[in-house]
Design a protein around this nucleic acid. Structure first.
Lengths: 344, 344
DNA sequence: CTGTTAGCGCGTTCAT
DNA sequence: ATGAACGCGCTAACAG
């Protein structure tokens, strides 16, 4: 367009807002009669260029509606300005608040968030991480199914922070399991329960530590405890477990999460059982529907939102990545109506 | 292991899996003694290269653990293999099934999904879309706060598909509102309700059409109807509306969504009201907790998952983008316990 | 303070 | 069938 006179410039000032193609630094450089690199500098390193021309450049950029192309920027710099969060199951309400916390911190810092689901499969998780790595500046891995060594190997390429579960060789943000379980067991102990079941999810790494801990704590209080495995950490999984719970003869149940607890509640109600008289139930997470249930769910409230924000903060912050930081957040017992003294 | 070539190369065959840097087509080109462009061709246009060398290249790529850099690929092609979904509120359970549907289709087709929240603000939405545009091949906009004209203008840069709400000049996938509302009003009419309230969200585009439709349908049945605005489409918003609902004297309420309905239920219970005797409630969406509530929620079930999959499919499919397609999915009334004949 | 020159990793003409 | 050269949009040396 500008077959320009050195001095005049604007003459044939046609509004070149063509549909589709977006303006580049070349367009604005040509418009103000400067070099593209100068434009780049003016836009990115404020102060390192003449105040007057910087203003001219900014004005032109604004007029043209210029927006930097993150992809093009990522090539030379190696930084894409995007982070990824990879988790087993998007529909699990537990992840809602966590994702939101992470997204909020990312956006507040001008970063974009990629979200990816692994369906609880270790292979998909590995594949996903490797595929995403070149496009992101770091990954937030929630409830990973990969073992520590593999995670550590993957983290040599791009920083990885574990969220909602502890990762020995990587920075992580997780709830204080001992604190929560102690509160739960004490509560049950105080009510007089002598026999409880832990409704766990076989296979998940995070499940093992919970079960081991529960075993120790119950033992220390002289409470008998059995593990009952659910097929999936869902409402259906919990409902399917009712039969085994009743067969076990326990007076109280610790559920893997609130979804499982919900399922158990629903199945019990369908079977004509009255809770908490038939047995007590303690959930995990305190998802928004926990207090909506009948009976309202006694549960361990996990600070999911904060787990998300803290995890994203340590991912973004280069400092925290150096020394594998371990952030542990309080896990609080919320007592509602699903727990009571045993009737037998 | 090719330490084969007498003349060139490998001698100091050190395993170059250096931590950090990922192999490029140059690495594999050099490894097999070919030109990078040949490698590119072999990997992307199967058949357009010698079968033998193609195999050699593939083998080398596998050994090195090569993965194409999406960013670098996006520059020359203009396609990033990434799509974005932008929505007002991540924590709304409604959006999760939708996101999951979209994510599933995206991943099944080898695409990555970016997720971004707008907090229900039109400005943030515009800003978000413009920022994301250069990095994506298209956008899925859920419950947009932008008007049709602006959306259409934005869509000239990169394809946009509307989800869960109708967008006149853009392709969209949305539930069949008339179908659902007719069922809801008929249900209420049959039960004998003569006066209902619509608990709507002021400001949202999608809200207007619902209200207008409700007005028409109620009118046609000789049912009096009032609109009560909630501050936010959340449990809290619904709870706060209880006072106005009672003041209005209606015998039934149509809630903007299940969250609002949940809030109303909870507030009513706290106030010692018995539902559905005091008044009937119909929700919208049928989120998983709807049947957990007490009384279990009668609600309009929205095919959220399918909205997500269909929307992503039309976004991906270049055909559907040409002629602004309108996909309308059935909205079914699920009758549970929160509706009954009026007691006054 | 600004212009020149080189790439980042890849796809895509062109030649060969 | 393969190689050489160029460009995508931008940043980063290095000159001037």
């Amino acid at each position: 367009m500008s077959k320009d006179e050195p001095e005049t410039t604007d003459s044939a000032g046609a509004p070149e807002a063509r549909a589709g193609r977006r303006p580049t630094i070349y367009d604005i450089a040509q418009r103000v009669g400067l070099n593209p690199s100068t434009v780049s500098r003016a836009l990115n390193k404020p102060g390192r260029t003449n105040a007057a021309t910087e203003e001219k450049i900014r004005a032109a950029a604004a007029e043209l509606g210029y927006r930097a192309n993150p992809m093009a920027r990522a090539l030379p710099t190696g930084f894409s300005g995007t982070y990824a969060i990879v988790l087993p199951d998007i529909t699990n309400p537990v992840h809602f608040e966590l994702i939101r916390g992470a997204e909020q911190v990312a956006r507040a810092n001008g970063f974009t968030l990629i979200i990816s689901e692994t369906e609880g499969s270790a292979e998909i998780e590995r594949e996903t991480i490797e595929t995403l790595q070149p496009s992101v500046d770091g990954l937030l891995v929630v409830a990973s199914r990969l073992d520590d060594a593999e995670l550590a190997a993957l983290a040599t390429v791009k920083p990885i922070v574990g969220a909602n579960h502890s990762t020995p060789s990587l920075p992580s943000v997780a709830p204080d399991l001992p604190m929560g379980l102690v509160a739960a067991l004490d509560h049950l102990d105080d009510l007089g329960h002598r026999s409880v079941a832990y409704l766990g999810l076989g296979g998940a790494q995070i499940n093992r530590s919970r079960w081991d801990l529960t075993l120790d704590l119950a033992d220390a209080r002289g409470i008998a405890v059995v593990e009952i495995a659910v097929d999936a950490p869902t409402v259906e999984g919990g409902a399917d477990a009712l039969r085994r719970v009743r067969a076990s003869g326990v007076t109280a149940v610790l559920a893997y999460n609130d979804l499982v607890a919900h399922g158990l509640l629903r199945a019990a109600r369908s079977a004509g059982l009255s809770l908490p008289e038939a047995f007590s139930v303690i959930g995990f997470d305190d998802i928004f529907s926990a207090e909506l249930a009948v009976p309202a769910l006694t549960t361990l409230r996990s600070p999911l939102r904060e787990i998300g924000t803290r995890a994203m903060e340590t991912l973004i912050d280069p400092e925290h990545n150096r020394a594998p930081s371990k952030v542990v957040l309080p896990l609080e017992l919320i007592v509602r109506e699903s727990t009571a003294a045993p009737t037998r």
